[in-house]
């Protein structure tokens, strides 16, 4: 009987440990402790911009194209080509683009954090920080979270603009079943400013979870290079689960009671 409960107990313990770690790091940011290392936060922000922006935008743009193409052909096939803008608007803003952002964040940023912190852990660099009198969790993890919060809202909103442009190109320029004016009228009619905020919140919750999960697995990596590889894989699995969980909950919470199209029924 004990063996039957051993695995769930282990998962529960791990969840508690991850939760406590995340709480500590978020506390360091909210409490301002991270500002002792504001320069490092800015450095991390710079690294994020230089190394991840283009690839995230590229995925968001491609999925914007797909939203536009799918919507144009599907609605044309059902006799309502002028309404391609509805599909593109919701596909972009509510679902696919936040997921695209989450996927690429998990694949590029999350795994990058695990690999970097894990390598630092196994080569004693984290211990070296500690013995220099530097709180390594604040220096390595809280600074990365603050950097993400500084950079990612702008990166996400700009990427969303790129996805909108991609959908427009697909529907109006490539497929061409609807005029530019007709597409934009419907496209903007089915979204409003709070929707942007909700979409941004959804993406930022995903980003926060991804950065924290990456920090947790990297900071606590052990067992040499193999251990770092295992931690990277584990972080990717957990991040993909969290991205979908946050995406689903976000849609229900923000748009479940939307009078125009209640998703919650």
């Amino acid at each position: 009987m004990n063996e039957l409960f051993a695995l769930p107990r282990e998962w529960l313990a791990a969840t508690g440990e991850i939760g406590r770690f995340m709480g500590t790091v978020m506390g360091d940011v909210w409490g301002g402790r991270v500002l002792h290392f504001f320069g490092e936060s800015l450095r991390q922000a710079g690294i994020l911009i230089v190394s991840s922006t283009l690839v995230i935008w590229a995925l968001m743009f491609i999925l914007g194209l797909i939203c536009g193409t799918e919507g144009a052909y599907f609605l044309e096939a059902n006799g309502a080509p002028a309404y391609a803008g509805v599909f593109a608007a919701w596909c972009d803003l509510r679902e696919i683009i936040p997921y695209a952002f989450g996927y690429m964040m998990a694949a590029k940023v999350g795994t990058g954090i695990v690999a970097e912190l894990g390598a630092m852990r196994i080569s004693d660099e984290i211990d070296a920080l500690e013995v220099m009198g530097i709180d390594s969790m604040t220096f390595l993890c809280a600074t990365r979270l603050l950097a993400a919060w500084i950079v990612l809202p702008f990166l996400y909103l700009a990427g969303m603009g790129g996805a909108f442009l991609a959908s427009y190109i697909a529907v109006v320029q490539q497929v061409g079943f609807v005029s530019s004016g007709g597409y934009l009228l419907i496209f903007w009619e089915f979204q409003n400013p709070p929707d942007f905020l909700f979409s941004l919140i959804k993406a930022m919750v995903m980003a926060t979870a991804i950065v924290l999960v990456g920090c947790y697995y990297g900071y606590n990596a052990g067992g040499g290079p193999v251990g770092v590889g295992t931690a990277t894989a584990k972080s990717m699995v957990l991040n993909l689960v969290l991205v979908h969980l946050i995406g689903m909950l976000g849609t229900q919470v923000f748009w479940g009671n939307n009078p125009n199209a209640p998703i919650g029924g």
């Binding site: 080569s123 211990d127 009198g133 530097i134």
Partner: peptide, 20 residues
């Protein structure tokens, strides 16, 4: 403890230099 550690210097086995 962080304050006290400022009085320490530690040489780790492989130097533990920051790779970046």
């Amino acid at each position: 403890l962080f304050e006290l550690r400022k009085k320490f210097g530690v040489l780790f086995q492989d130097g533990a230099l920051f790779g970046s």
